[in-house]
Amino acid sequence: MGMYTELVCAFELIEETPSCIIEMLEFMSGQREKHPRELPEHQLFSEGSRWKWMLQSDSYYFDGKTHSEIVRDTLVGGCYATIRCNLKNYNNEIENFIEWISPFIYKRDENYFIGYKRYEEDKEPESIFV
């Protein structure tokens, strides 16, 4: 059956982030209906992976309600991601997601904290740094 892992993170994307990456995040978060024409070349998007729904996945094992949103700030500028979801991390979707999006995250310093993941049976979360 498997256990759930919660992912909670927030980050700003660098200005040079290609629009196809932002559109992919919007699709994954449920904000865009149209499936991207081309998938990025990354393990996250391999056959059998559940990347399409991972940022929308939810269960009753964690108290927080799933909410993932990509916001383009038209006043100040910038693009921001807020992600809260939980899923059965069978194919390391969470780790692959972080690896895929990391080059596009605006890092305010070296080893920048963006959030955490927590396995269903663990009492303490594991911090995520990029």
Rank of each mutant, 00 (worst) to 15 (best):
H42R: 10
Y4I: 02
Q43C: 12
E23Y: 09
W51L: 11
I83E: 01
M54L: 15
T17R: 06
F27L: 10
S127K: 12
V8Y: 06
I70T: 05
A10T: 03
Y119A: 10
T66C: 13
N92P: 02
E69N: 09
Y116W: 12
C9A: 12
P40R: 12
E69S: 11
K34D: 12
F27Q: 07
V130P: 04
C85V: 04
F62I: 04
M3G: 09
I98Y: 01
R108P: 01
E95H: 03
Q56K: 14
K65V: 14
W51Y: 15
E33A: 13
E33D: 15
P103V: 02
L87A: 02
K123W: 05
D73W: 01
E69V: 10
M3Y: 09
Y60C: 14
K52C: 13
L7Q: 08
L87P: 02
A81M: 07
S19I: 14
G78H: 04
C79N: 06
H35V: 15
E26L: 14
K34I: 13
L87G: 01
F129H: 13
E99S: 13
E6Q: 15
K88R: 07
N89D: 14
I14H: 00
H67Q: 13
T5K: 12
M24Q: 14
S49F: 11
F62Y: 07
Y60P: 06
I21G: 09
E120L: 06
R118E: 09
T66Y: 00
I70H: 03
T17G: 07
C85S: 11
R84H: 08
E38F: 12
